[in-house]
């Protein structure tokens, strides 16, 4: 069980998924809201990062607003080839994450490129290298993106 039993960590994870202040001493100001001192909040965030309970702290950039492109893709990989195909797909630095899922379309990965025009090239390369079809599933509309993790 990894549920937080530490109230400081819990307050930070629940209270600081957004809204970190843009002020000169933001840890002091965020701490005041959560009832923590500047030193306590800095140490606690450092501890959460070190333990891997948070994967990142800071601004979450929207790659698409900055001119980049993100495209979800799926493949139906024969189960015996899944590790070999994962190695080929993951070798592309543009592949940001890749999940195996329980379905005929069993490999789901996200291509993140600095320019939209680069996405089709990565897909074509992966198809050529694996001999498998890639199904691009670019989002046509975003209804919500965020994290609402409550610990």
């Amino acid at each position: 069980m990894t549920r937080s039993r530490n109230p400081t960590e819990q307050a930070i994870i629940n209270g600081l998924q957004g809204g970190f202040p843009l002020t000169r001493q933001p840890f002091r100001d965020a701490g005041a809201e959560l009832g923590l001192s500047e030193g306590e909040i800095i140490d606690a965030i450092g501890g959460l990062l070190e333990a891997g309970r948070i994967s990142r702290f800071g601004p979450l950039w929207n790659a698409e607003r900055l001119g980049g492109a993100v495209c979800l893709c799926a493949m139906a990989v024969p189960p015996r080839r899944i590790d070999a195909v994962a190695d080929i797909v993951n070798a592309h630095p543009e592949v940001a994450h890749n999940y195996e899922r329980a379905h005929e379309l069993n490999m789901w990965f996200v291509i993140s490129a600095e320019k939209p025009a680069l996405v089709a090239g990565v897909i074509a390369q992966i198809e050529a290298e694996t001999g498998l079809k890639v199904y691009p599933m670019p989002k046509t509309r975003e209804f919500f993106v965020g994290f609402r993790v409550d610990v």
């Binding site: 994870i13 809204g19 309970r53 950039w61 929207n62 607003r65 965020g146």
Partner: peptide, 28 residues
Amino acid sequence: AIARLQRLLASGAIRRIGVIPNHYALGL
């Protein structure tokens, strides 16, 4: 730097500023 980050947040180039939880490590 603060003024530019405020502008980038207002324009949506920054989605939010804070902690990004690791679902798996938190038991989800």
